[in-house]
Design a protein around this nucleic acid. Structure first.
Length: 882
RNA sequence: AGGCUCGUAGCUCAGUGGGAGAGCGCCUCUCUGACGCAGAGGAGGUCGGCGGUUCGAAACCGCCCGAGCCUACCA
């Protein structure tokens, strides 16, 4: 065991504590889990962060929630495995290294492919540890001995295996198709990688021979190979099938008119130019009508030789020039301002150019069908439920997945082309010669979409394609915790590929959490300058406070709005816990656990034990339902407002009065046992401070070496004590009433009041037992007497059936008491009026459930009683002040 | 265009059919022997609007207003 600091300071200092415990846990091997058939497994795979990235708020939230779950389950006796790792993040990483090269005045082509890839690996080695260190800083209890990287040899083997099998099954194919091309990144993008943004543009109405049509992309006019109208559009029916002579900037072109359902007759003029080479819709129309493809914009975003005199011009410059030229020729009817969605590269925000090229695709339709079924049958449970709809909708409308990328960093596509006979060979092993003719081969130059490898993550990290004990034990994983932004990119792909290759779902639950935003609800981004750096927050307020904040704000279906004041609030909470423990620890002299256990438990002891049991149940239930914020607030409420506000204050009475040794022992015992269990309950949320304090508490010799491997609290029925809860509620009510009178009457806290309680029925015993407590907590001398008469010049409070008289003679003027009573009386009268009106309506009495009606009647009776007592008091006061 | 989510105390948010809640902030008091990163007390809300279902609606349904997100080939 590491040595805790010798003395507890009066403020919790997170830095020293955090530095101490993580290495301890790690060196003891508490994070690692091995397949053990006799123990129930619980497993999570981490959503792998970008290997060269650093921790942001999204990671912090995501990993805190996972750590809460895995720590709780580990303590609860499960064989808990959390597999960590990182993702090679194709484009993102390549772009970073390209930028580094640019700073040196070089390009990746200068280096050549091999040297460039080597350079990326070097950068990965250099910066790859950052995010891992940061996760450790956060307290993440991952099994680091199982850390994986998507380009590890084992995972790369899984990638090839999947590729080959899908290819053999005819689900991977190569096709000429129109794709999203980023002219800056020089690669194709999947549909998901294209972002939409509304932009202002010109809607140019061009004369096409006898027709006029509108377009936002006049530069693609040079690639037009058709004109389309709706088949039912009477206005243009006569042109369908004709070949029109269309005068244009490059002389007159012959263009065929076709009829196609894709045309909306109500939009613009109802006539559309068809450019199959540069528009996805036009591409489909072209296919249906056998229109030729004419490519006038190249992969570099510049006009091609096909564009004649515009060749070499940037596509946007060409647009301006062509409009000018057409205007000069009188070919433009008019121009309207227009706002429409433009496709942008998700990485560099360059306007995506639709282009026709040959790419690799996965036909995911049949895989999606299985993935839909798995959710529908409940084999995968999505939490919160609402996301199921989004998942279904996307899966049902899924399109072929373009998986080739024109990058150098990633898994190279395992396909070889024979230079002699042109045959294509997909292979698990690298090929050096054509398997059919023995001729020379060259490998496809493209790499795979990064999500192709991360889609295998839940089983590739556990050793697939080998049949490992890890897979047998930990697959399917128990839960996947992730943000909704990668539901399609990642979750959906894992579901499809897991079902295909493991014949089982990759995870039983998917918990989808929200995005972290700033206090104004804005998405955090560097350009807005509103990012809150998790590392700065951890330094400033402590990791535990930071984690607790994230958990407390993680309500289902809500964005997490993070304001620094919240973290500060939970920093105070950590400090509160620290000081509570300080109080307990500094009053343990003479404590003997075995002796103490024999002393009788008082009302307050039974009460706090009962409350702890209720809190334990609530935390467990909330975590099971992924209601993280409910779990956090239950434990917060208990620690601060029950344990600290009440029990600690009560315990002081016994602690400081040494003459009653048994009472003191009992208080010590309750303090130690309740605090100890509370620390365990809190540990998954606040791992560091709980360990530090737990280590200092006296405990059994057989107890484990660390709180993180101690048992998670379970509430037993024995601990639940309804009677104690009821009686303590009455006692606390009396104390609060006395304090309330003191506050409202502005009586100095130092003044000891004379108080008489006339207890109502069942509270008499409890109030007598706790009389000394009430005196201490209410700063008063207390008389409990069922036949008490009201003392002269006293204030009255009513708690349930009990009456409380606070003597005011010489302490306060009676007018203030009259004002206070009148306020109370009005409140009672309002409630009575409301309840009487409710009970007066026959519909309510007849149709509402009997117990509800009963409850309202009881309430009314209670209020009537209160009213009577208050009125009596007021009359008495008037009499007394004469 | 379609879909989804959200409008509750000054701020951030819990609360899915029976007495309007929490944290922070605010006001008053307290230099009490765990903690001023504290303690005690208090003020503050026609639950976005309108209509409907119901004995009963912050909650369920419809419409409207406002904020946001996702999906989409209206050139």
């Amino acid at each position: 065991m590491s040595d805790p600091a010798p003395v507890l300071s009066d403020r919790y200092d997170p830095a020293a504590v955090e530095a101490r415990w993580y290495p301890h846990w790690e060196s003891r091997g508490y994070f690692s889990a091995d397949p053990k058939p006799q123990q129930k497994p619980y497993s999570i795979v981490i959503p792998p962060p970008n290997v060269t990235g650093s921790l942001h708020m999204g990671h912090a939230l995501n990993n805190t929630l996972q750590d809460v779950l895995i720590r709780m389950k580990r303590m609860d006796g499960f064989n808990a495995l959390w597999v960590p790792g990182t993702d090679h993040a194709g484009i993102a990483t390549q772009v970073v290294v390209e930028r580094q090269l640019a700073a040196e005045g070089k390009t990746k082509e200068d280096l050549g492919r091999e040297a460039f890839v080597e350079r990326v690996w070097r950068w990965k080695e250099e910066s790859g540890g950052t995010i891992i260190r940061q996760l450790k800083r956060l307290g993440a209890s991952c099994d680091w001995s199982r850390e994986r990287f998507t380009m590890d040899p084992g995972l790369s083997r899984a990638v090839r295996e999947v590729f080959v099998r899908l290819y053999d099954d005819g689900l991977i194919y190569r096709d000429d198709y129109i794709v999203n091309w980023c002219p800056r990144c020089q690669t194709v993008l999947s549909d998901l990688e294209v972002e939409r943004e509304d932009r202002d543009a010109q809607f140019v109405y061009i004369k096409y021979g006898p027709l006029t049509l509108g377009t936002v992309r006049p530069e693609t006019k040079l690639g037009d190979t058709g004109i389309a109208v709706h088949p039912k559009d009477r206005r243009y029916a006569k042109y369908v099938g004709q070949v029109l002579d269309v005068p244009s900037v490059q002389g007159t072109a012959k263009i065929k008119v076709v009829a196609d359902e894709a045309v909306d007759p109500d939009f613009g003029t109802g006539v559309v130019k068809v450019t199959p080479g540069h528009d996805p819709v036009d591409f489909e129309i072209g296919k249906r009508h056998n229109l030729p493809i004419k490519t006038v914009i190249g992969f570099d975003g510049k006009m091609t030789a096909e564009a004649g005199k515009y060749a070499g011009l940037d596509r946007f410059e060409a647009r301006r020039r062509i409009v000018e030229d057409m205007q000069a020729l009188g070919l433009i009817d008019h121009i309207e301002p227009y706002r429409h969605a433009v496709g942008l590269c998700y990485r560099c925000k360059t306007v995506v150019e639709p282009l026709v090229s040959k790419q690799w695709y996965v036909n995911v339709k049949p895989l999606a069908a299985e993935a839909i079924k798995a959710v529908r049958q409940g084999r995968i449970k999505i939490v919160p439920r609402g996301w199921t709809k989004t998942y279904d909708h996307w899966m049902e409308n899924i399109r072929p997945w373009c998986i080739s990328r024109q990058l150098w960093w990633g898994h190279r596509i395992p396909a070889w082309y024979c230079e002699r006979d042109g045959s294509v060979h997909v292979s698990r092993e690298d090929l050096t010669a054509c398997p059919t003719c023995g001729g020379p081969v060259r490998q496809d130059t493209d790499v795979l979409d990064t999500w192709f490898s991360s889609g295998l993550w839940p089983f590739s990290t556990l050793g697939w394609p080998d049949d490992t004990p890890e897979l047998k034990t930990f697959y399917p994983t128990s839960v996947l915790v992730t943000g909704f932004d990668i539901l399609f990119f990642w979750v959906a792909r894992m579901a499809m590929l897991g079902l295909r290759f493991m014949n089982d779902v990759p995870f039983r639950d998917v918990y989808i959490h929200a995005l972290v935003r700033d206090a104004e609800g804005q998405k955090m981004s560097k350009s807005k300058g509103n990012v809150i750096d998790p590392l700065v927050m951890m330094d400033k307020y402590g990791t535990d406070a930071f984690r607790f904040t994230l958990v407390a704000l993680a309500a289902q279906g809500r964005d997490v709005r993070l304001a620094e004041e919240r973290i500060e609030g939970y920093r105070n909470f950590a400090n509160k816990l620290w000081n509570a423990a300080r109080l307990v620890l500094s009053n343990l002299d003479g404590y003997d656990a075995r002796q103490a256990a024999k002393t009788p438990a008082g009302l307050a002891d039974r009460w706090i034990v009962s409350r702890l049991a209720a809190t334990t149940t609530e935390v467990r239930t909330s975590l099971r339902r992924y209601r993280f914020n409910d779990a956090a607030s239950a434990v917060y409420q208990f620690v601060w407002h029950e344990f600290c506000d009440w029990y600690l204050e009560i315990a002081k009475v016994a602690l400081y009065r040494r003459e009653d040794a048994a009472a003191r022992l009992r208080a010590q015992h309750t303090l130690v046992t309740v605090l100890e269990a509370t620390l365990r309950l809190l540990h998954p949320f606040m791992p560091f401070i709980t360990e530090e304090l737990w280590q200092r508490l006296p405990r059994d010799k057989r107890a484990p070496d660390s709180i993180m491997v101690a048992a998670y609290p379970k509430a037993s029925r024995r601990q639940h004590d309804a009677e104690a809860e009821r009686d303590m509620t009455a006692v606390m009510g009396v104390v609060t009433a006395i304090r309330n009178i003191r506050g409202e009457m502005h009586i100095a806290p130092g003044v000891t009041l004379a108080v008489t309680v006339k207890p109502g029925g069942e509270h008499a015993a409890a109030l007598r037992e706790t009389a000394r407590l009430v005196e201490f907590l209410g700063r008063c001398r207390l008389t409990v007497d069922p036949r008490a008469a009201r003392p002269p010049a006293s204030a009255l409070a009513v708690v349930g059936a009990s009456e409380i008289y606070v003597e005011l003679a010489g302490v306060v003027d009676l007018a203030a008491e009259r004002a206070r009573l009148e306020k109370e009386l009005k409140r009672a009268a309002d409630t009575i009026a409301f309840l009487e009106a409710k009970l007066a309506r026959p519909e309510f009495v007849e149709r509402a459930p009997a117990d509800i009606v009963e409850k309202e009647r009881d309430r009314l009776a209670e209020q009537h009683q209160l009213q009577q007592k208050l009125e009596g008091s007021l009359a008495w006061l008037t009499e007394a002040s004469r």
